[in-house]
């Protein structure tokens, strides 16, 4: 990971950031294995450069963006809470830019309602994508409603802690949607498609009763196998750091995003 300059932003938190060693050594990135330490251990051979993202579908100006185009966007540092669906959380200083500014460049059509994302498939560089046991169908796919995708909090991230993204965190470019569970934050993106239909999403395909399309952080709606009422903040001094805390609706971003879901039953649309 190389050094990466970014402007300061108004997106800060008065909570301590999670130590970088935890952010980069405790990951869910099943393309590199299902263990939390697997992505850091198994991603050394992954080549995040050169890289292109194809943006297509219901847009006036479909095009490809090279990594250099993404790094030329006005980058800012934004510190967000990250809440995993597994009831743990981190505070991460991302570097990135609003997804909306990328979408503006391709001019979505009025008929576009959703944005679909796709992760790279490289079995020769991603050991989780080869062998007899494949934990998920590839490519990993995710999606957002267009208004969620255009929300000012939604960013494409190209770095963290002042450097380009480590492979295990989704190099070279990933999605960050801070009010949703972490699995929505699709990594190593190669394709973005504007569409008028709700796109399939990987974890929803894998277990529809456990992972919904929306996946908004919600302490009132339990995962079938565990409560979502509280979370374990990673990296706060081992067993006795007092790391168990209440989970906030929309991960604490309710003031900014709750209006997106006005009138929706969030227990049904989990």
């Amino acid at each position: 990971a190389a050094e990466l300059k970014a402007a300061a932003s108004a997106f800060k938190l008065d909570e301590p950031t999670t130590p970088e060693k935890d952010v980069t050594n405790y990951n869910n990135f099943y393309e590199f294995g299902t263990g939390k330490a697997d992505p850091a251990a198994n991603s050394a051979d992954f080549k995040p450069t050169p890289w292109t993202i194809k943006v297509e579908g219901m847009v006036s100006k479909p095009r490809e963006f090279g990594l250099e185009d993404l790094l030329a966007m006005p980058l800012e540092e934004r510190t967000y809470r990250m809440r995993c669906v597994e009831a743990w959380s981190m505070v991460i200083p991302w570097i990135g830019f609003p997804l909306a500014s990328l979408l503006d460049k391709v001019e979505p059509l009025g008929s576009a309602k959703y944005v679909a994302f796709e992760t790279v498939v490289r079995p020769e560089q991603m050991p989780g994508q080869s062998g007899y046991f494949q934990p998920l169908p590839w490519p990993y796919v995710e999606g957002l409603r267009l208004d969620e995708a255009r929300h000012p909090l939604t960013i494409l991230s190209v770095g963290l802690y002042g450097r380009t993204l480590p492979n295990q965190n989704g190099a070279p470019v990933r999605l960050v949607v801070p009010w949703k569970y972490g699995f929505k934050g699709i990594k190593s993106i190669v394709k973005i498609t504007l569409t008028d239909k709700q796109p399939p999403t990987t974890w929803n395909l894998s277990a529809a009763n456990e992972y919904g399309f929306y996946a908004n952080v919600n302490p009132a709606v339990d995962h079938p196998r565990w409560s979502q009422a509280t979370e374990n903040r990673i990296g706060e001094g081992g067993f006795f750091g007092g790391s168990r805390r209440d989970t906030l609706p929309f991960n604490g971003y309710g003031e900014e995003v709750a209006s997106l879901y006005a009138g929706m039953d969030l227990a049904a649309n989990f």
């Binding site: 405790y26 939390k36 990296g235 081992g238 067993f239 006795f240």
Partner: peptide
């Protein structure tokens, strides 16, 4: 290891 903060990530779950 967990009590001294040496288990990476989610120490309680790991233990």
């Amino acid at each position: 290891l967990g009590a001294t903060g040496q288990l990476p990530g989610n120490a309680i779950k790991e233990f």
